[in-house]
Design a protein around this nucleic acid. Structure first.
Lengths: 110, 110
DNA sequence: ACTTTATATCGTAATATTGCAATATTAAAA
DNA sequence: TTTTAATATTGCAATATTACGATATAAAGT
């Protein structure tokens, strides 16, 4: 028990869940917000920007990267992180589908 | 430690994170998928549809409801669950914003 | 070579999540 | 009113997540 039964669900469902899970923490939302706001992605200015210790930020960045939401480029001894379009597009398409289903509701009970 | 420092982030960031977190499990994605697919929301047919025990489904439904992603209507001794537009719209708007930031990238490093 | 700067990894404590059996609740049906 | 059907709650074991200090790594500056 305690383990998510991911093998009982479709690949698509697991993909969406993984992306959503990565976004499912305020610190990671804050990182995404910061990356869209800032002109050059001055890497870990993020550490100075957020009220979390450097190892914690590093961990969150790793999770965002694993989920495909951001990508990093090595620049000298620093790393430049940017938002990656792939995962964003995938989950955006999912919500468009959901929103479409709401626009033409088949359910009449609620 | 181990507690999410939600008080260090904005209300908006916490809202987005909470919605995303609710979607961040394949069983809950499967429930949302099922609710958009089915004509009438025959409530917990979900229990028959998914490979999880009834208390587990009930728990997942509660989380989706708390996040505002679904709403339930009592119909006799059954409950009719449907997707709720509010949270979907909120998170969809968030992804549109992110996608827009990608379309006009300010970052040149990645 | 030594120091600084930027980032990652390890280890670990605190807490949260997942899943289910057992049990409770509530309303229809017999 | 007893039974059945649909759902919720409780309690608990297994596992996952969050956060951070300490430490490692790696490139740049001195």
């Amino acid at each position: 028990m305690g383990t998510t039964k991911s093998d009982h669900f479709s690949v698509k469902q697991n993909q969406i869940a993984n992306i959503a899970k990565a976004i499912g923490h305020p610190a990671r939302v804050a990182i995404l917000d910061y990356l869209t706001k800032v002109d050059s992605c001055i890497c870990s200015d993020i550490v100075n920007e957020l009220p979390l210790a450097q190892p914690t930020i590093s961990q969150h960045l790793k999770e965002l990267k694993t989920a495909g939401l951001i990508k990093g480029n090595i620049e000298g001894n620093a790393i430049c992180y940017c938002i990656d379009e792939k995962a964003i597009e995938k989950i955006q398409a999912y919500f468009t589908k959901l929103a479409g289903a709401i626009a033409n509701p088949k359910n009449t009970c609620c």
